[in-house]
Design a protein around this nucleic acid. Structure first.
Length: 575
RNA sequence: CGGUGAUUGGCGCAGCCUGGUAGCGCACUAUCUUAGGGAGGUAGGGGCCGUGGGUUCAAAUCCCACAUCACCGACCA
């Protein structure tokens, strides 16, 4: 490709809204343009990278034996009602009606459609195992799209679905996909971790996320320094503390703490360290038949955070809903800031660490007062102990080996063992060897392909621009001619090298614009081409062509007759 | 969903307070000089100032409504 015939669309200045390096650079490098909130066009340079990412995914998934299909982005609401997710998925699911008033959704994921396909096409257990996949556009009406294509509403996703007769078959399919993901993310050059994860709105009973490690990541992951344990913070556990308490001392008593609303304020006023202060949250329990719900108290150490995913599993609700101030006041007689378990009339859930506390402080369920010298059992006879908190830096790993550390990650892939959640609700069954109809056992597998591109930029850039891993680079080699319009010699050599690289099948961008050298170098480095070759009179005089590796900045001079060979060698070394 | 802020040429911004000819830098077109790390000159082109209403002789500017976009927060006991 010649720049004179290409749409480079690079920018010296950045649109003001871009905060993240990857977003800024993708705009400046002319890869993407926003058309609406969370909706983007991929310009030629971006499209080239995206195509390479999709190609890597397709090659490795094909190699795992899965079959490519293409499902529609528009899906009838009917299917979503069958699976039960039409009411459960929430406003992220974009719903609309056609001219005949029929209801549709824009597919945020494809379990429903693929299950409908499977139940129609697969009748016998002998047709299994089968794995169907697609690379296709998804739409999720995100609460807050941000960071360019990192969290956009419309995006391209790889999604695969495996069908088996039993759990053993699913285990094999899951392992195959896990291995394919490892090959994919290795080829993309990511520094990543596979972690245990919560199954969220997709459902199922086991899942792993693939997280690219980056400071700007929106997810927190915990990993052990003594074993290969790694999990999303939503799922991460630590070793249970040994339950040993000091003997209860004096009976509890009230302390006035008027005007204190936070744990820190209360600690300062009462004069206890934050580890001796109990934090009490009041949330909604499951809805009863009359539509009302019980209030449940959750108690944590003052310095620890509630893990909502753990809590909702215990509560049996779809989400953790904090009770309103009015509800709390009506039920306890106090307002948030002065709550505690002593005398609380509802169910009390206590975190394992909080359960180890003794002679501690907490709210008095009376505005403007806290209690001191409170003890479990003696003062709060009825309570239940669970793991309810987020793990913290330095917690012991749940396998007993090593300590946990926290890092930020960008979720680029997620794989789930679904089981029969969809095949049962949507009646996707096969006839087994005993002539019995059994629901298929499913797995589902996703990769945010557009997000992978952003993650690659996030992980690899410098002050000059993007530094692509060779496998994703829009072009492998850039040829910059210096004063090519003036010098016949320069033009001829650059042309010769360009033709030769093209013939070898190398993705090469020949910058043949009539621009000053610095201007061209800046563009080539901004869009992050791994190998930059300079053809100019200065070095041609000595029969040389210059070469620079973008990643390291190391420069070399090649004899012009062996330049092609040397460049090909550098490309091979970087693969 | 809550809070804050923005909306003026393709991009980045000024002008608004104190109403009266719409401006700057980059980019773009032509041309000359320049030519190894985002050059300089000269001459140009391009904007119903987010939308709708109101006040006024007169609105980018003042008032009201709406829309769009962005950032922050959604752990508060």
């Amino acid at each position: 490709m010649r720049t004179s015939q290409y749409l480079l669309s690079t920018m010296k200045e950045t649109p003001a809204e871009a905060v993240l390096a990857s977003h800024r650079l993708m705009l400046r490098a002319g890869m993407i343009r926003q058309i609406s909130s969370g909706v983007y066009t991929w310009l030629p340079t971006g499209m080239r990278v995206l195509s390479k990412a999709m190609k890597i995914v397709r090659e490795e998934i094909d190699r795992s034996g899965a079959l490519e299909i293409l499902m529609p982005g528009v899906q009838p609401a009917e299917l979503w009602k069958e699976s039960g997710r039409y009411s459960k998925y929430g406003p992220e699911l974009c719903r609309f009606k056609d001219r005949k008033e029929n209801e549709y959704v824009l597919g945020p994921t494809h379990e429903e459609v693929v299950t409908a396909i499977a139940r129609a096409e697969i009748k016998s257990a002998r047709q299994l195992p089968l794995n169907l996949y697609q690379i296709q556009t998804k739409f999720r009406d995100e609460v807050r799209p941000r960071f360019g294509v990192m969290r956009s509403r419309e995006f391209i996703m790889f999604d695969g679905y495996s069908f088996d007769t039993d759990k053993a078959g699913l285990d094999v399919a899951y392992k195959k996909m896990y291995d394919a993901y490892v090959r994919i993310f290795d080829r993309m050059g990511f520094n990543y971790r596979a972690v245990d994860a919560d199954t969220g709105s997709i459902g199922g009973y086991l899942s792993n996320e693939f997280q690219v490690l980056a400071e700007s990541g929106e997810d927190l992951i915990a990993y052990s320094d003594g074993s290969d344990y790694a999990a999303n913070i939503e799922k991460a556990e630590c070793l249970a503390p040994e339950l040993k308490r000091e003997a209860p001392g004096a009976a509890y008593s009230e302390v006035a703490t008027l005007g204190c609303h936070t744990v820190d304020e209360a600690c300062a006023k009462v004069g206890v360290p934050v580890k001796k202060m109990l934090k009490s949250l009041v949330v909604h329990g499951p809805k009863k038949e009359d539509g009302e719900c019980e209030l449940v108290m959750i108690c944590l150490c003052g310095n620890q955070e509630l893990n909502e995913v753990k809590a909702l599993k215990i509560l049996g609700t779809d989400e953790v809903e904090f009770a309103t101030d009015e509800e709390i006041a009506k039920f306890t007689g106090a307002h948030p800031g002065s709550l505690g378990p002593v005398g609380f009339k509802g169910r009390i859930l206590v975190d394992r660490d909080a359960a180890c506390m003794s002679n501690f402080s907490c709210g008095a369920d009376k505005d403007g007062f806290h209690l001191i010298n409170v003890n479990w059992d003696r003062d709060v006879p009825k309570y239940e102990v669970f793991d309810l908190r987020n793990v913290e830096e330095g917690d012991p790993s749940p396998d007993g080996k090593g300590r946990l550390h926290l890092r930020r990650g960008i979720e680029v892939g997620h794989i789930f063992m679904l089981g029969t959640k969809y095949s049962e609700s949507m009646h996707a069954t096969v006839t087994d060897e005993n002539g019995k109809d059994v629901p298929m056992v499913m797995g589902c597998y996703g990769i945010g392909v557009t997000r992978c591109v952003a993650a690659a930029v996030e992980q690899c850039h410098d002050e000059h621009g993007i530094i692509w891993p060779q496998a994703l680079a829009p072009f492998t080699v850039a040829i910059v001619s210096i004063n090519g319009d003036k010098s016949e010699l320069v033009r001829a050599e650059a042309e010769k090298l360009y033709q030769a690289l093209e013939e070898k099948g190398v993705d090469v961008l020949y910058d043949d614009r009539k621009e000053r050298p610095g201007f061209k170098f800046a563009d080539m480095e901004l869009i992050g081409i791994p190998h930059i070759v300079t053809v100019g009179e200065k070095s041609l005089k000595d029969g040389k062509i210059e070469y620079k590796l973008r990643k390291t900045g190391v420069k070399e001079a090649f004899d012009k007759d062996s330049a092609l060979e040397e460049i090909l060698k550098r490309i091979a070394q970087n693969a």
